[in-house]
Design a protein around this nucleic acid. Structure first.
Lengths: 338, 338
DNA sequence: ATAATTTTTGCATACGTATCTATTTTAGAT
DNA sequence: ATCTAAAATAGATACGTATGCAAAAATTAT
C-alpha cells in the first residue's frame, strides 16, 4: 500500500520550530509556549499529523498496550467482560491486544512469548492456566499479570474472581431451604479454580446442614459434556435438584431435562447455577443463578493492573467480588425467602 | 516495574558477532551461516532474547497489528467471529488490537484515529458505519479496510457479508411454501446494510409470489425493542409467521410470543430468522434460520486483508457468502421440503 | 535599567531493530 | 595453486519520537 507518513519533523518544518518543540506540544507535562503550541497545532492539522504510538513506545518504554489472553468466547460471560475491559482501558489510554489460546495456534507458552514481543505493559489472563515459568518470565520482564476469573496458588499472582466459595454455599443453602433432599452437582473442568471453589463452597454448606451430595458428574464447562452428564445423572434415581457449575452448561442441562427427559423445571427438578450471563434472564430459561458481577470484576482488574504498572515490584493482590444469588424461576423458591 | 531488556546488541556481544548478524538470524530470507546462526541462538536462549516487535515495526514499517473495530458483542455472532478472526490472523503472524465503539469512549472518528496511531497494517470494521472522511483518511495512510458483515455504498470499500438478499428471499420462500398467508417482518436497525438487504430479499420474494408484507415493526437489533415490536405486531389480527432480522432478536420474539402471548411455535405462529448463532440450535429455541457462515466470512476477510496489505492500491472487493437455510423446528416445515 | 530567575527552545542523542554498502571469507572453477 | 563468483559479515545509517543539556528568551524582582 502507498504510504503517506507525516512526521513530527515535517510538522516542525511547516510550523517553523524544532522537532523537539512539536514533541513537547504532544507530551503531557512538557513545557511549550502558547504561541508555539498554536503554530504546531495549525501545522499538524494542515498535514494531518498524529504522533506515532510505536515510535513513542520505543523511546519512552510505554507501549500503552495491554495483552489480553483468553481461552474461548463461547461462554457469553467472556465477551461481556472483554467488552467492558476494552472500554475501560480505552478510557485510560490503553488498548487491548487480543490473543486466543486456540489449540490450532501453538501452545500457551509460545502465545505468552508473542504477547511479550509486543512490549505490552500488562497482561490479563482470562480462563487460561499459566505455567510458573511463564509467570516468572513476565515478572522478570517487569510485565504485571492479572488473572481474570481464575486464581492460581503459589505464584503470588494477582487475580480477580467472584467469591466462588461463598457463592457455591449460597446455592446450597437456597436448595436446602427449598426442601430438596437429593441434590446433584454438575462440575466444570476440574482444573479450574472457579470449579473447585464453587464445589467446595457448595458441599461445605451441604455438610454444615447435615446433608451430602447425592450425585456428581463432570461437564467440563462444555454444553455437550453437560448434556451427557445430565443423562447419566438422571438415568436412575433422579435428584430433585441440580447445581450446575456455570450458566453455559446449565442451559444444556435444562434443555436436556425438559426436551429429552421430559422433566418440568422447577416442579420435577430445580436447577441453579453460576454466572448470570444475559441469557440466564431470558424467559426460556429464567435461571436462578449466582451472579458474577462482571462490572466490578473488570473495574478491580483494571485498578490492580494500573497500580502494578505504575509502581515497582508490587505484591500480587487477590480480590474476590461478592456474588449475590439472583432468584428467578428455575429452582423452587423457599417459603418466606426474602 | 523493573525492566530487564535484552537487546540484539547484547546477544551479539555474547555470541561474538555483530548486531546486524543477530538481526539477520531473526529475519526470514536474510543470509546467515550455519555457524553464526547456531552461536546466536545459543546466546539468545541464554539471555532470553526475543526481537522487539515495536522496534522492528519502526524500521520496517510493518507492525503486524490489525485493528479490529467492533460495535458490541452481545450478539453471539460477533464473539464467534472475533475468535475466528484472531486465531486465523495469529497463524499468519498478525495480532489483533481491539477497539470498542462504545458510546462512553468518544465518537467513531476519534477511535479510528487512535487505531491509526498504532500504525496498524489493516483495519477490520465489524458492525459499525464509517464516515467517508475516515475511509479517505485510511486510504491516504495506506491502511486497507475490510468491512465485516456490513457493506457501504459508494466508498469502494472492501466488504464481506453473507448473501443477505438471497438469504432473505430464501426465508420468504420457506414461509410461503409452508402455506403462510399473513407474514410479518421485524426489522433490525435501519441504518444497517444487512437489515436492508435481508428485507429487500424477503419482500422481493414475497412479491414475486404475489404476496405482500402483512405487518412490519422495527427491533433495531435489540432484544428489548424486538419484544416491544412483537407485542405491537400481535396486538391485533396476528400474523401466522414472522421473519426476524437476526437470531438475537428472534430469541426475544419467541420468548415474548410464548411466555407473554401464550402462542405456540410453530403451531400458532412460525418464526424464522438469520445468522444461526450457536443458541439457535439450543432445544429451547430450535430456531429455523438462515446461516451466516462465520468461518467462510472470516476466511474471506483475512484473505482480502492480506491481499490489500501486500499489494499497492488494490481495488476494493465485495464478497457475499452463500447463506443456506437451516431447517429446525420454529417454523412449519413445508410438505415435501427436501 | 539591571540582575536574578524562570520558562522556552534547539541541538544532540537514545530507543532496538532492519538494511544498505563495502569488505572479508568461503566455495567453486580452471 | 590461482582466479572468479558467491556468500557472509561488520559498520553505518535510518525509522519517528522523547528527553537531557545548554543556550536563548521571557518574566520577575531589585
Amino acid at each position: 500500500m502507498t504510504k503517506e507518513k507525516v512526521t513530527s519533523q515535517q510538522v516542525a518544518q511547516l510550523a517553523g520550530v524544532s522537532q523537539s518543540a512539536v514533541s513537547r506540544v504532544y507530551t503531557a507535562g512538557a513545557s511549550a509556549s502558547k504561541k508555539t503550541t498554536a503554530k504546531v497545532h495549525k501545522a499538524a492539522t494542515t498535514l494531518g499529523y498524529r504522533p506515532n504510538v510505536l515510535a513513542r513506545a520505543m523511546v519512552s518504554g510505554k507501549s500503552r498496550i495491554i495483552g489480553l489472553f483468553v481461552g474461548y468466547l463461547e461462554n457469553q460471560f467472556y465477551p461481556d467482560a472483554i467488552e467492558k475491559l476494552s472500554t475501560q482501558l480505552q478510557v485510560k489510554g490503553y488498548h487491548v491486544l487480543i490473543f486466543m489460546a486456540s489449540k490450532t495456534a501453538g501452545n500457551i507458552d509460545s502465545v505468552v512469548e508473542e504477547i511479550l514481543d509486543y512490549q505490552v505493559e500488562g497482561i490479563i489472563v482470562a480462563s487460561v492456566a499459566l505455567s510458573s515459568q511463564l509467570a516468572d518470565r513476565c515478572r522478570l520482564a517487569g510485565v504485571p499479570i492479572v488473572l481474570f476469573n481464575r486464581s492460581q496458588d503459589g505464584e503470588g499472582l494477582s487475580c480477580v474472581t467472584s467469591d466462588n466459595f461463598s457463592g457455591g454455599a449460597k446455592a446450597a443453602r437456597f436448595l436446602l431451604a427449598g426442601g430438596h433432599k437429593k441434590i446433584g452437582y454438575i462440575a466444570g473442568w476440574e482444573g479450574a479454580s472457579t470449579q473447585r471453589d464453587r464445589e467446595f463452597g457448595f458441599t461445605a454448606a451441604l455438610q454444615q446442614a447435615g446433608g451430602t451430595l447425592y450425585a456428581r458428574e463432570v461437564g467440563d464447562f462444555s454444553m455437550e459434556k453437560a448434556s451427557e452428564a445430565t443423562r447419566q445423572m438422571f438415568s436412575e434415581d433422579s435428584p430433585d435438584a441440580v447445581f450446575v457449575a456455570n450458566d453455559h452448561m446449565a442451559f444444556a442441562v435444562m434443555d436436556t431435562l425438559r426436551f429429552e427427559l421430559g422433566l418440568r423445571i422447577p416442579e420435577d427438578v430445580s436447577v441453579i447455577s453460576y454466572d448470570d450471563v444475559p441469557a440466564a434472564a431470558w424467559p426460556a430459561y429464567n435461571l436462578t443463578t449466582v451472579r458474577q458481577c462482571a462490572d466490578q470484576m473488570v473495574q478491580e482488574t483494571v485498578r490492580i493492573l494500573m497500580e502494578q504498572i505504575h509502581s515497582d515490584g508490587m505484591q500480587g493482590q487477590q480480590v474476590a467480588i461478592g456474588s449475590p444469588i439472583i432468584v428467578r424461576g428455575s429452582a423452587r423458591i423457599p417459603e418466606g425467602w426474602e
